[in-house]
Amino acid sequence: MRLTPFETLGIILAVAAGTQITRWLPFWLFPENKQPPAWVTDLGKVLPAATMGLLVVYCLKDVAWSAAPHGAPELLAILAVTALHRWKGNVLLSIAGGTALYMVLVQCVFV
C-alpha cells in the first residue's frame, strides 16, 4: 500500500465523483419535466447500437494484429460467438462457448 488510508479514500472519492458526473450529466441537462429536443430523443434510439459496436472494438483494442497470431484467437472466438448465437439464440450459451474456445486457443493452441 503506497498511499495512506486517507489518501486512498481520497482517490476512491475522486474516481467516484468522476464516474458519477458522467452518469448524471445527461439527466441533469434534460430533466423529466422538460421535453428534450428531437435530436436528443432520436440519438437515444440509435446510440445503443453504435455504442455496442464501439465497445466490441474497445475490447479488441490491445490485440497485436501485425504480430503472430494476428488476432486469430479473438477472431475465431468472435466467429464462434456469432455462429452459436445465430444457431441457438441463447445468450449464455453463446458467451460460454466463445469464452471456452478462446481460453483453449490462448492457453493451448496459440501459445
Binding site: 482517490i11 474516481v15 458522467t22 452518469r23 450529466l25 445527461p26 446510440l47
Partner: peptide, 26 residues
C-alpha cells in the same frame, strides 16, 4: 497521491457513460 489526476482520468475514460444516460432518458 494525485486525486485531481484520478478525477480527470475518470472523466475521460468514463465519458462514454454520457451516451448511456442519453439513451436511457426515455
Amino acid at each position: 497521491f494525485g486525486p485531481l489526476q484520478a478525477f480527470l482520468l475518470t472523466l475521460m475514460v468514463n465519458a462514454r457513460h454520457m451516451f448511456y444516460g442519453l439513451s436511457m432518458l426515455e
